[in-house]
């Protein structure tokens, strides 16, 4: 359908009215969901990563059940898919892609970046991950295996990147400021400014 902005607004208003009239979804629930969607941003994921780097017990909880760990940050995970967290360790680097569409851990990272949804990224990340990383300027230590995680079904996946060297003693806020969305997809790695 090709609707004008005005027609879209009327269609949306009619749909919301029907949902409320049939007691399917209240206007308050819709407002809450819109607010949560707008709040979601890579800064939330970065805060979780920084906590995992400084608190071993939280790191264990994050790896065991990402959604429950996110709730500790006040992130609304009700109705969101399960969140799996992929830990980069020496010798193993993760790269997340959705070859079928654009599945992304929106609840913790916000809207996916434009390139994540591109046909080029979706096709190449799974077939030529080393070529993709090279174009992002990401170099891995020799002997590092790459594990591409194709997000095809009911989970959403984020990467727990490795803490950069030279950040010993940094507090959580300073560490979180190092972490970008690409680091949590696996195309890049956190580095000192």
């Amino acid at each position: 359908m090709n609707l004008s902005g005005q027609e879209n607004d009327r269609l949306l208003a009619a749909l919301r009215g029907l949902l409320a009239a049939k007691n399917l979804v209240s206007t308050a629930e819709i407002a809450e969901r819109i607010a949560a969607t707008d709040r979601a941003s890579p800064a939330q994921g970065a805060a979780m990563v920084a906590r995992a780097w400084t608190d071993a017990a939280f790191r264990a909880r994050l790896l065991a059940d990402g959604a429950r760990a996110a709730e500790e940050f006040g992130i609304m995970m009700r109705g969101a898919p399960p969140l799996g967290v992929l830990e980069n360790v020496p010798g193993l680097h993760h790269l997340v892609v959705c070859t079928l569409c654009s599945c992304y851990p929106r609840a913790v990272l916000g809207y996916p970046p434009f390139w994540y949804k591109s046909v080029a990224y979706r096709a190449r990340a799974v077939r030529d991950p080393r070529g993709v990383l090279a174009e992002w300027g990401t170099t891995l230590p020799e002997g590092t295996r790459i594990r591409v995680v194709d997000s095809t079904a009911d989970y959403r996946w984020m990467v727990l990147p490795r803490r950069p060297d030279g950040t010993e003693g940094w507090d959580e806020a300073a560490l979180a400021a190092l972490v970008r969305e690409g680091d949590m997809v696996g195309v890049t790695q956190p580095r000192l400014p």
């Binding site: 799974v126 077939r127 030529d128 991950p129 080393r130 295996r145 790459i146 594990r147 591409v148 995680v149 194709d150 997000s151 095809t152 079904a153 009911d154 989970y155």
Partner: peptide, 20 residues
């Protein structure tokens, strides 16, 4: 194994997929 899917892949690299 990436090698089982694509001939030009690097030995040791992997793809992990959710399958019903």
């Amino acid at each position: 194994e990436q090698r089982a899917l694509w001939p030009e892949a690097t030995e040791g690299d992997e793809v992990v997929v959710e399958i019903f």
